Deep mutational scan, measured.
Amino acid sequence: MSIQHFRVALIPFFAAFCLPVFAHPETLVKVKDAEDQLGARVGYIELDLNSGKILESFRPEERFPMMSTFKVLLCGAVLSRVDAGQEQLGRRIHYSQNDLVKYSPVTEKHLTDGMTVRELCSAAITMSDNTAANLLLTTIGGPKELTAFLHNMGDHVTRLDRWEPELNEAIPNDERDTTMPAAMATTLRKLLTGELLTLASRQQLIDWMEADKVAGPLLRSALPAGWFIADKSGASERGSRGIIAALGPDGKPSRIVVIYTTGSQATMDERNRQIAEIGASLIKHW
């Protein structure tokens, strides 16, 4: 058993032996400061991975655009179909130039040979490839079927209504393609630790998130040596930015963190910096 498999397999085991986890309101002070700095709403939640207890939250039940963070949920739905014998990670999917949409750094290189379902999930999560996400959405029946999958998990909040890139429109008060921090954190925890997916599929999902290559300026920039993080970021119109993550010290995840912001006029660099500073406060007061 690899170190990674050891880590995921023991998450339920550690729940019975973990020390009490204490919240630190200092992080919420930073979240509120980020709102002031960005001139935008910020949603935040910090969840204990083992118990599911909410440690801190700010606007946990307000809607925010999901942006590309939905791609983790999408690959969770794909893995659920794999577990049920309805899909194979090794199945190759062929597509054409007409299928390519904006920001497809991986799929645009494989027009001649296509990509496997496994490769598409990797591209969608680690590189946020939009065509990969659309191709995967097609395999499960489209955005409405992803919403149905989430409903069956008990998440009646999170919804996907459109495809890439239209889902990134982020119109104020538009509930399409949105979630709430509390709903996203709970759903992510179920995917990573619950019985919905097999152990192998849970491991695969967290491996893809751990290999994320496009979230460096966010929480990863504040991470001390030896800490673990598996994450997925997102960005969209109207100053929207977000990240969902499982992270913790000693090389294993122990908390879920979800951060969303929307409605800012700030630059992408400034949005990144504010999220990184929230992460730094979280780690300092861990």
Results as ranks from 00 to 15, higher is better:
Ser96Phe: 11
Ile243Val: 10
Asn152His: 15
Pro224Thr: 02
Met268Ala: 07
Leu223His: 01
Ile206Lys: 08
Glu169Asp: 12
Lys109Glu: 13
Gly154Val: 02
Gly251Trp: 05
Asp83Thr: 02
Leu111His: 09
Met115Ser: 02
Arg273Lys: 04
Pro65Gly: 05
Glu175Tyr: 11
Glu166Leu: 08
Arg162Cys: 06
Lys284Ile: 07
Thr138Lys: 15
Asn134Ile: 01
Val72Thr: 05
Pro12Ile: 14
His156Arg: 11
Ala34Val: 09
Thr179Asn: 00
Tyr44Phe: 09
Ile275Thr: 01
Ser254Cys: 09
Leu223Ile: 13
Ser236Gly: 15
Ile259Met: 05
Phe14Tyr: 10
Pro253Arg: 04
Ala235Ser: 10
Leu219Asp: 02
Met67Ser: 09
Gly114Cys: 09
Asp99Ser: 14
Glu166Ser: 12
Asp207Arg: 14
Gly226Asn: 09
Lys232Arg: 02
Cys75Leu: 01
Ser201Gly: 09
Leu10Val: 13
Ile3Phe: 13
Ala170Lys: 07
Trp208Leu: 04
His285Thr: 09
Gln203Thr: 12
Leu73His: 03
Asp113Val: 07
Leu55Thr: 04
Glu237Arg: 09
Ser240Pro: 03
Thr178Tyr: 02
Val29Met: 13
Pro165Leu: 07
Ala230Val: 02
Asp177Tyr: 01
Val31Ala: 05
Lys252Glu: 12
Pro20Ala: 06
Arg189Ser: 11
Ala222Phe: 06
Pro172Gly: 12
Gln37Arg: 15
Thr187Val: 05
Pro65Glu: 06
Glu175Ile: 14
Ala225Leu: 09
Ala170Cys: 12
Leu38Tyr: 06
Leu55Ala: 02
Arg7Ser: 12
Thr198Val: 06
Thr179Met: 00
Asn173Ala: 11
Pro165Val: 09
Ser80His: 15
Asp269Asn: 11
Asn173Gly: 15
Ala40Ser: 10
Asn50Ile: 14
Asn130Asp: 03
Lys144Glu: 15
Ile93Arg: 02
Val257Ile: 14
Asp269Ile: 09
Ser80Asp: 08
Asp231Glu: 03
Arg220Leu: 01
Val72Ala: 06
Glu166Val: 08
Ser281Gln: 10
Thr138Glu: 15
Gly43Ser: 02
Asp231Ala: 05
His24Tyr: 05
Phe149Val: 06
Ala222Asp: 06
Ala222Gly: 07
Ser221Val: 09
Trp163Gln: 07
Ile93Phe: 04
Leu28Pro: 00
Arg189Gly: 07
Ser80Arg: 12
Leu135Gly: 00
Glu175Arg: 08
Pro217Leu: 06
Gly242Asn: 02
Met268Gly: 06
Leu247Gln: 00
Glu175Trp: 09
Arg81Thr: 04
Ile244Ser: 00
Ser254Asp: 12
Leu38Gly: 05
Tyr103Asp: 08
Ser68Gly: 08
Val106Arg: 06
Gly234Cys: 04
Arg81His: 08
Leu282Arg: 00
Pro105Thr: 06
Ala16Gln: 11
Thr178Cys: 05
Gly154Asp: 08
Glu61Asp: 14
Thr179Arg: 00
Ala280Arg: 14
Asp174Asn: 04
Val21Arg: 01
Glu169Arg: 07
Phe6Ala: 09
Met66Val: 11
Asp83Arg: 01
Lys30Thr: 09
Leu247His: 00
Arg92Leu: 12
Arg220Thr: 01
Gln97Val: 15
Trp163Glu: 07
Arg159Val: 14
Ser240Cys: 13
Asp177Gln: 01
Pro65Ala: 07
Cys18Val: 14
Thr198Ile: 05
His5Asn: 14
Trp286Leu: 12
Arg159Leu: 03
Ala225Gly: 12
Tyr44Arg: 00
Thr198Leu: 07
Pro165Ala: 05
Ser96Thr: 14
Arg176Pro: 04
Ala215Gly: 09
Arg91His: 08
Asn168Thr: 07
Ser2Thr: 13
Glu175Lys: 09
Gly239Ala: 03
Gly90Ile: 09
Arg162His: 08
Ala266Asp: 05
Lys284Met: 11
Lys213Ser: 10
Ala132Ser: 07
Asp250Glu: 12
Leu192Val: 08
Phe228Val: 03
Leu205Ile: 07
Gly239Ser: 06
Glu145Gly: 15
Pro165Gln: 04
Leu196Pro: 12
His24Ser: 11
Ile229Leu: 05
Ser51Gly: 08
Asn134Asp: 02
Thr187Gly: 04
Asp174Cys: 06
Met153Leu: 11
Leu19Thr: 15
His5Leu: 14
Glu56Leu: 04
Met268Thr: 07
Lys53Ser: 12
Ile93Tyr: 04
Asn50Lys: 13
Ile54Val: 14
Cys121Ala: 06
Arg202Pro: 15
Glu164Gly: 00
Leu89Ala: 05
Glu87Asp: 10
Pro105Leu: 05
Lys213Val: 09
Lys213Met: 14
Glu87Met: 09
Lys144Asp: 14
Pro181Arg: 00
Ala15Gly: 13
Ala183Leu: 03
Ile244Val: 14
Thr126Asp: 05
Leu89Asp: 03
Gly251Ile: 03
Tyr260Ile: 05
Pro249Ala: 04
Val214Phe: 04
Glu166Thr: 09
Leu19Gln: 15
Trp163Ser: 06
Pro172Leu: 10
Leu55Gln: 04
Gln97Ile: 13
Met127Ile: 09
Pro60Ser: 14
Thr186Ala: 14
Met268Asp: 06
Ser236Gln: 03
Ala148Gly: 12
Ile125Thr: 03
Asp161Asn: 03
Ile3Arg: 09
Ser80Trp: 15
Phe70Val: 07
Cys18Phe: 06
Ser96Gly: 13
Glu169Val: 09
Arg189His: 13
Asn130Ala: 02
Ser96Leu: 10
Ala200Asp: 14
Pro165Thr: 10
Gln97Lys: 15
Thr116Ile: 04
Met180Glu: 13
Leu38Cys: 05
Ile93Met: 11
Arg63Pro: 04
